[in-house]
Design a protein around this nucleic acid. Sequence first.
RNA 1: GCCCACGUAGCUCAGUCGGUAGAGCAUUUGCAUGGUAAGCAAAAGGUCACCGGUUCAAAUCCGGUCGUGGGCUCCA
Length: 640
Amino acid sequence: MVEITLPDGSKQRYDGESVEVREVVASLGDNWLKTAIAAEFDNHVVDFHQRISGEGSFKVLRESDPPSLDVLRHSTSHLLAHAVKTLFPNAKLAIGPSIQDGFYYDFDVEKPFTPEDLERIESAMRDFLKTRMDFSREVWSKEKAKDYFAAEGEAYKLELIDEIPDSDVSVYRMGNFLDLCAGPHLDSTKWIKHFKVLSSAGAYWRGDSSKPMLQRIYGTAFYKKKDLDEHLKRLAEAEKRDHRKLGKILDLFEVREEAGGGLVFWNPKGSILRETIEQYLKEKLLEKGYELVLTPHIARAELWSTSGHFDYYSDNMYTMEVEGQDYVLKPMNCPGHILIYQRKLHSYRDLPVRFAEMGTVYRRELSGTLHGLLRVRGFTQDDAHIFCTPEQLSAEVDASLDFALEIMADYGFDEFKIELSVRDPKKQEKYAGEPDEWDAAEKALESSIRRKGFPFTLMEGEAVFYGPKIDIKVIDAIGRPWQLTTIQFDFNLPKRFNINYVDRDGERKLVVMVHRALLGSVERFVGILTEHYAGAFPLWLAPVQCRILPVTSERAPYGKSVLEALIERGVRAEMDERDEKIGYRIREAELQKIPYMLVVGGKEAETGEVAVRAHGRGDLGRRKLGDFIGEIVDEVRSKR
RNA sequence: GCCCACGUAGCUCAGUCGGUAGAGCAUUUGCAUGGUAAGCAAAAGGUCACCGGUUCAAAUCCGGUCGUGGGCUCCA
């Protein structure tokens, strides 16, 4: 007997040990069968072909239910594999899951796919769709499956079968294409209409660089044409916002081949932007009771042996030998801050001690992972270390969380995702620190988030070996998440360096140490901000806030007086007095996304006015220079 | 690091079959003094990423190096 509970609370019963989902859906009425994609039984997505048993909640999934999209994409990946196997019979199948924005399928082929191959594959897929194919599911014994896939030469599938704990496996058939697959799948190909093969790239089998390199084809699929079009538009929008492109147009920064990959040169405009961000943060740090420190860029290797970095991080460190001594270019700021802490004996009355530094560090990232400002080899962390007593821990986490959110709000981020990474309870031995320390730390982090009332995702087993952490991801203007803030406990370094304080009872005790970065890396943050604002920075951040455009060279002297008045009030202003027509100079200022353009000609010169034009908003009309300065200064202050 | 693609003027890019390079923009110089998104003309500008090989001859073909781009478990 099978019993299901429908969303409206009503129950249905079916005879027998198990029942096919298709039957269940059919029993609910004919129209359901036409519109249903799959179903949810006991909170698991099941397709028409699967059998359910026992009792559980049951919900029919239709196009608009999010899990249906995964089903569509997974099935489209099978269609892709079908096309590939048809065009490239020697291709070996790996895996083909549905992912965030689409799907992929990995193949082992002799030659990587060319863009032309992808076109052929896509049109083969469309050809298949001309005749409707039904998906069907079969349950095979492992032996049968192994015999079959061995005969087909599908080595990757054999490897997968061996890892499946059950005694039986499922295979799905579509036309004459058969694949080892857990499902769920569509009932037929009739739902596959709006899809696109996007790109191909190398990808290791199981993401392991010691394993063979496969060729991955990415694609996406939607139920509605409108959704596909919108998705493709989003991709185009993301490309337009690419900080590498904008960085060049706006003359912010460069990565020079002469110097090497992942090393950033900040041009004047990028530098002023960075300075603005850093100076603002430093002001805030001082307000919040942090002390600014500076530590050397290189230090003897011994320091890094004490910290333990040498043992597990040396592949990522730049090292050098000086007069027979090994030195390390710092990949992290913590040991330096610890040395400063240790310059004297601390009383519990001194704590918490909070050290902050715009600490530039260098890490040897793999060349293939370098990416604009987002993944570099030299970068500046807004790094801070808090040394406190266990009792202070909770308050410090609270304050850090508040600080992070306050800063994010200034940059126009108002949507977040918070992740709390804790131990894997099954692997206690891999963590530094005592279980009760961990309990306290994890509790402090969790209660801080709860106190703020934020939803969060608990990431069990995601904690680093030295302590639990909170990560905050911000959602940018086009909905993409970026990880910025991290607040991490450290039970490792206090022991290694014996960082202590003298408590009330006269005993020396180990401090509790918290690593904390709000923006993460300043380089990366500027990259993210550039994409978030699409290069049109708000006034307070704009490298050039105001450009003065005299209509004719005759009005340059008046322009100059306007310029001087603005600069005197701290506005980043410049004048474009080239012998070009006003339209041409406006166009250039618009392309450079300069927030304000002041057009000054005869009329303005006579009345002491300026004609204000705002980026993207056009002509705002004339006003007194003094009024404009008041407005612009206010706007900078408001960080809007 | 690995797979694939790419690297030509400051920028964006053409360059066919191997025969010593071209456009637009930017720059400089003239002319034009123009009121809200590109005035006109001329000049100048290149170690075709770098190193090596094949060839009478290489931007072009081959090998290597460096750099850039798309990716490298969201798991049958």
